[in-house]
């Protein structure tokens, strides 16, 4: 398997990158970590004539807390940047933990959070926890800049609202929020290098033992990461108990529409949604952002 020939660009500024993308049009692809793009190119699944690398744009690699805005994650931050970020450890350790559950160490060193989102694979591990934490993203074009709530970003397997001939995903923002706990539980078929069979993220806002609010997001059981609103409704305003969380788990199963594939049957995935939802909720309620 070989990479076919292509033109390679490594613009020095974001503006230059956006202009290049607009000028080169559909024949160009953005290269971040390359863990998906280069494999697709080697297999001939995408055949760009030009590749625009973001490697010179170091400003897209930072993870900072901006008071009033929240935690701002540069789209080029690698999964291991997320894993090791003191800022995330302080504010949302659950995001670091979710990143650590992805793939294997080699991939985590190369792959980026932006690439993971734009690739829009239903089983991706980062979208559920980011959506549960109400993340929004910034898409920058040659003459535009817009913010999109992450839960509206995905439109189908490998599909999202980004304009592929104009826009570049630059940052992910986890807004300052009242949530008291969050976590992501991944069910893979081995401990490293396994795609999720099912993943469930939960974020909760507690007042004592009362669940003021919650956000639950399911991965790998719907064409896109999907909020389990029915389960959230079960919880809202209630005093938590194992029975209540079990009830939320049952409700979450109703929000999933999994397929049967080589990693598991739809029936199994539905039951995993039930189990993982109640476990994720309990963890978020009792342990905080983990």
């Amino acid at each position: 398997m070989f990479l076919p020939d292509f033109d390679y660009h490594a613009p020095e500024t974001l503006a230059e990158a956006c202009d290049l993308l607009r000028d080169l049009g559909p024949s160009a692809k953005i290269l971040a970590g390359g863990t998906d793009l280069l494999i697709k190119m080697k297999h001939g699944l995408v055949t760009p004539r030009a590749v625009i690398s973001l490697k010179a744009l170091d400003e897209l690699k930072t993870i900072t807390h901006v008071p009033g805005r929240g935690v701002v994650i540069g789209a080029r931050a690698t999964h291991n940047d997320l894993v090791n970020s003191p800022v995330l450890h302080e504010h949302f350790l659950s995001v670091s933990e979710a990143a650590h559950k992805m793939a294997n160490n080699q991939i985590r060193n190369r792959g980026t959070v932006g690439g993971n989102l734009v690739n829009a694979i239903p089983s991706a591990d980062l979208p559920p926890i980011l959506i549960a934490l109400d993340a929004w993203i910034t898409l920058v074009g040659s003459n535009t800049s817009r913010t999109v709530p992450l839960h509206t970003f995905f439109t189908g397997p490998s599909c999202c609202v980004i304009d592929p001939v104009d826009e570049i995903l630059t940052e992910i923002v986890l807004p300052d929020q009242p949530t008291t706990g969050s976590t992501y539980l991944k069910f893979g078929l081995r401990r490293s290098g396994a795609l999720s069979v099912t993943g469930v993220a939960a974020a909760v806002t507690m007042d004592g033992d009362t669940i003021v609010d919650s956000r639950i997001c399911l991965g790998a059981v719907f064409p896109v990461p999907v909020r389990a609103h029915d389960a959230e409704d079960v919880l809202r305003g209630k005093t938590w108990s194992d029975e209540l969380l079990a009830e939320a788990g049952e409700a979450a199963s109703c929000c999933a529409l999994p397929i049967t594939d080589i990693r598991g049957t739809a029936e199994y995935r539905l039951d995993l949604v039930r189990v993982l939802t109640k476990r994720a909720l309990k963890r978020a309620i009792t342990e905080g952002h983990v």
């Binding site: 294997n104 081995r190 401990r191 490293s192 396994a194």
Partner: peptide, 10 residues
């Protein structure tokens, strides 16, 4: 990826 041999973690 889909023919899963164990990793050191397993």
């Amino acid at each position: 990826s889909e023919y899963r041999i164990p990793t050191a973690m397993d």
